[in-house]
Design a protein around this nucleic acid. Sequence first.
DNA 1: AAAACGCTCAACCGCTCTTTG
DNA 2: GCAAAGAGCGGTTGAGCGTTT
Length: 325
Amino acid sequence: MGRSPCCDENGLKKGPWTQEEDDKLIDHIQKHGHGSWRALPKQAGLNRCGKSCRLRWTNYLRPDIKRGNFTEEEEQTIINLHSLLGNKWSSIAGNLPGRTDNEIKNYWNTHLRKKLLQMGIDPVTHRPRTDHLNVLAALPQLIAAANFNSLLNLNQNVQLDATTLAKAQLLHTMIQVLSTNNNTTNPSFSSSTMQNSNTNLFGQASYLENQNLFGQSQNFSHILEDENLMVKTQIIDNPLDSFSSPIQPGFQDDHNSLPLLVPASPEESKETQRMIKNKDIVDYHHHDASNPSSSNSTFTQDHHHPWCDTIDDGASDSFWKEIIE
DNA sequence: AAAACGCTCAACCGCTCTTTG
DNA sequence: GCAAAGAGCGGTTGAGCGTTT
């Protein structure tokens, strides 16, 4: 089905709504409800197309519209939901009472997107930007993530997995750096670059905190169910795993990559949904299970990765001392 | 003072999805 | 199963306003 013909009709007014038009629309909807939007303009005495009336009502005139600045909590919710759902503005709006999809979309494009960019986070993937960061940029994040262990009072398995993952990623990062940048003249190790890294890193660390990733009280399970993202539901139920999304330093393209915990980008979410629809989610979960470096395998408590064995023994603080030294 | 520039957000466009006959 | 109508969605536009030069 193509475009609705109502907007093609000539002679219908476009552009900003006048107070008189608003009053007519409000009055009519209050008395009769909106019924058929197409029929409404005529009944209400408006020289507008039904679509325009619907938009005006849903985005501006509806009595339950909440106007004014977004709160911190709302911002967090938008960012979190956007990392899960992508540009599904209506789905995001559904979880912010009184806010419209249009308003959220505008707020994202004008404020939140820039905010994330300034923090060194790619607003599309919700991962650290790799275009201007060297590989060491991820280290303090990983350390910070692992150190959250002490802040958590969650079940032991969860702690172990998250800490293990962070350590594994750090270890992997170090190995990568050492193997690919062992030339000390490499700009990646120049003092100036390190300084730049620190600047960006702090921004990224604060992103982690802002995301409430480790104390996330918001439960998005219902949204994910709505979106048929059952795999992610499992992940989100374990708030620790959430950190995998924003801090994945983009190593998954590498043949040595550690497994991703969840599809971190909207594109990957789509792929997950596609797999669910195609009933091959089991394959997704166990994708190339024999190969721990498989970039598509999900990391859950049910799966044991051989590479974990190499670092499980390093759960003590001495592990970090050794690494950092 | 005014031109240029940048930002915000209401509104529109064109597409897809859902419902109906 | 098909086509048409209706509704909804995400992307884009442009007027209005504030700030900078």
